[in-house]
Nucleic acid binder design. Structure first.
Lengths: 117, 117
DNA sequence: CATAGTGATATGTATTGTCAAGCATTTGGG
DNA sequence: CCCAAATGCTTGACAATACATATCACTATG
């Protein structure tokens, strides 16, 4: 049990890093797909689900809730019965278009075709 | 003239979409962090692990292997014993800097401080 | 009046990521 | 000399996450 000052402790800059946080948000499964889908206009729940393609409702609901909480997506309930809701991007959400576009450009240039699987 | 082969298949635009694929790659946990870490120079395994911060070796090894397979990262073994390896970004990997920068810009402008917690 | 569609939520299961320990060896300190 | 630390990973048991599917109350359409 060394009482020494441990000068070699990594002490990995725990000061809040926005980029690190942002990556943690965008890296969650389906998040980027959701944003991409909403970039071409507001959508209802099932509509969004179809646009995203393959995400199950539980996960979608969870993602959308988090994105709303983060101020990236806004949810508007037009009527509860029959259910009619619409999800849209906020200003912050729209701003993510730049990120999607960067991914778009990169993928077209560097992502190899899947060829024969 | 239906060939009678599974006509009920949704047939959801299976034409390869590079952006969709790219998102699927980047959305895997730690991937973006790894790339970001490697942007400021090649690193060894443990070094990378520390730079990424919080990723366990099993996952890191798996991610790095996939990224290598995709031609985003290159692995060079300098000596097996003592072990000494280095991971670096390929050209395709470097190109992802544009994506990271887009995230960087977005996060600084729109990501709220974590407040309390 | 049956069917399909709306926005979700609840099950149980499958996939995914995590933790802790360990391997063979060199290096550094005591 | 010998113990501890560091290197680049791998393994196996476990937990967290996402999945498919069924279901709800209700309306609009055919």
């Amino acid at each position: 049990m060394v009482r020494s000052i441990a000068p070699e402790t990594p002490e990995v800059d725990h000061s809040f890093c926005p980029v690190y946080e942002a990556i943690n948000v965008l890296q969650e499964k389906w998040t980027l797909h959701i944003i991409r889908s909403l970039l071409d206009g507001p959508k209802g729940f099932n509509e969004l689900s179809r646009a995203v393609g393959g995400c199950n409702p539980a996960t979608l609901a969870q993602r959308v809730e988090k994105l709303e909480h983060l101020g990236i997506v806004s949810k508007t309930i037009h009527s509860t019965m029959p259910p009619r809701t619409s999800y849209a991007l906020t200003e912050a959400g729209q701003a993510l278009q730049a990120v999607i576009e960067a991914i778009d450009r990169w993928s077209r240039q560097y992502l190899p075709a899947p060829s024969t699987k």
